[in-house]
Design a protein around this nucleic acid. Sequence first.
DNA 1: CTGCACATGTTTTTT
DNA 2: ACATGTGCAG
Length: 765
Amino acid sequence: MSSTNSYLHQLNDVQRQAVTAINGPVLVVAGPGSGKTRVLTYRVAHLIEEGIPPWDILTLTFTNKAAREMKERIQQVVGQRADRVWAGTFHSIFARILRVEAAHLGYPSNFTIYDSDDSASVIRAIIKEMNLSTEDYNVNAIRARISSAKSNLIPPARYAQDQELMQADLLNKRPHLQKVYEKYVARCKRAGAMDFDDLLYRMFELLHTNPEGVREKYQQRFRYVMVDEFQDTNHLQYEIVKKLVNYEGSPRNICVVGDDAQSIYAFRGATIQNILDFEQDFKKYNIQVYKLEQNYRSTSHIVQAANEVITNNRKQIPKSIWSDKGDGERIRVLKALSDTEEGKRIVDAILEQKNRHHLRNRDIAILYRTNAQSRIFEEYLRRYNISYRVFGGLSFYQRKEVKDILAYFRLAVNAKDEEALRRVINLPRRGIGNSSVEKISLEADAQNVPMWDLLPRVSLTGRTRTAIDGFIHLIENFRQQAATTNAYQAAIYIAKQSGLVDSLKEDTTVEGMGRVENVNSLLDGIKEFVENQADEEPGTDTSLAAYIQSISLLTDQDEQLQDEEYITLMSVHSAKGLEFSSVFVVGMEEKLFPSFMAMDTPEGLDEERRLFYVAITRAEAFLTLSYSASRYRYGQMRYNEPSRFLNEVDLTHVEMAGGMGSTTIMPGMEPDFDRRSAQTPTSGVSGNFKRKTPANQLMADPKTFKPSPSDQIQTGMKVLHLKFGEGKVLAIDGGRDNRVATIFFQGSDTPERRIMLKFAKLQIL
DNA sequence: CTGCACATGTTTTTT
DNA sequence: ACATGTGCAG
């Protein structure tokens, strides 16, 4: 039956093998644009067609969007049965299970999920209460360290015994970090709250301690497990997966799909070691490995450039991505003198492309290393009247006014939630100031009870006492509402009675009105939630608690957009998994891309390079890279050198057109503010590139290497190149600002190379 | 307790 | 540049 199924004919040989190998462990290494999602979804569809009950299948992804798309695509093949598959993010699936099993862990089933801001706030309070120096105890650094400890399965007690960790903290002048960690965990617990890491950690704990045989329950439940973006999993996630599938007598029907070259989240604990470990761990169970190497997304120049770039990394799973879509356009490189000029040139180029190639806005993306870079492009896009959308930055749910009202909702659902309590106990002002809150907090800590429980009996008098009693009454009232009416009714009630909306309305500035607007759209969203839930199946949960749960794992990225026509502006990180006809990767400069934070270590640099790899492989047909000689950073003008990554792209893939500003735009559209930036337009395209070199062939010692100024380099000189070693300059040609040297490097497989002197690092010998 | 001036710390961030 | 947090005077 299944062999005649049409979906199998939509796959190439390797893809089909990966889809139909349903028994035993499978590792799929999937290059960019190689049909990874297709394989994953068809594999699930295939399982169902083969008679596996959908509810036996678990697919874990990283984003809600990926999970949703997968469900939709499975549905297209197998229809409604797709709804019964367990498809979701690690966090959402585990949260769902943890709500059911919460009692085993000493948690209420309506536990709150703390986001990163909540976590930071808890840590900040602990540092303050312990009277630790806020200078040495940087909140974000501590949060990262706690997160990393949890991700590596090191609870506070084990942390205390770990000499290496304790020693490192001591050296960083944070000897009490372990104590902060311990308190943090205790506080989350007593607040009935789990942070993002807890959703994983507690899941592991549940399977590990195995109360009343829950482990076996889920092992039998999930007989087929799949993991997407496996290169992004951290140690803890892999340990959970192993608990689920790697046990005595297990069929070990586990399929992981990933690409080591696209691992860009090492900074938060993701490790490609998991891919290597997976191969080892399942070796004896007849593991099958498939490599998807055909790229269906991009033309050859782009794919080959990507291949070249990534070979500069020290470690990787060998693979060769190829495309049969033809050479396509060469990669363009734009140079600008300032960040403003970069903005203008990019937007000019966008206009030109739109005209010449009839691209729609949605075909185009501007990708950058840091979100702060978006502003200048926004400015020009606005001026040119091109619609765009910026992704990333503050999410809707992170806005203050939204968080404030959500805090009331959270409190109505779980009164133990201390972060929510701190947020709203004096909002709007009701005369319960910092010192009172501090007192309650310290007392709660001493007695190890939630702050909420202490409110009635904490020794405060007079006005404050009255205010607190009023607050208790208010929240009790809200709890009542939340328990008896649906989410929308309760939300409206709370918004009014809390006084929050009224106090927001007092601010009649544009921003103030925007905040009221945001609260209103939140309320609209809740209304929609109630209606949708009611539509689903009669009897589904439309409570405020259910609403809070549904949004606490959502981000802005999940927002479904109509097919509006806009240009996409986002960080390279956010662009992973997406594709566009035309991609502009901007800010290709040292210290920016690669980031100065990651430049010092080889591992950091490799990750930046993978990030660049991700960036360029987003492009289907047109790829433009740009850099600027200077830009503002933290309010200060900085001068930057072009990114070393530009050097790693072979010249053959780059458009060398000397086209001086060939980016003419339609007459009459030239904005006059251009005159304000008194910059002369630079001559068109340029770049600094090298020819193909084998990776890891350092022929000069980087420690003693000192590049000479490029304008001193003349014909006949002996020079040293970092990668190619010693060479002789045979000739120099090109314009004054664009000199290209032909250099003969002895012993290289392609001894004669043409190198752009402007940036190439050469030392005169 | 509240409001304002000053100081501080800035990569990326699926959840 | 800019937002967010802390300290101090009223």
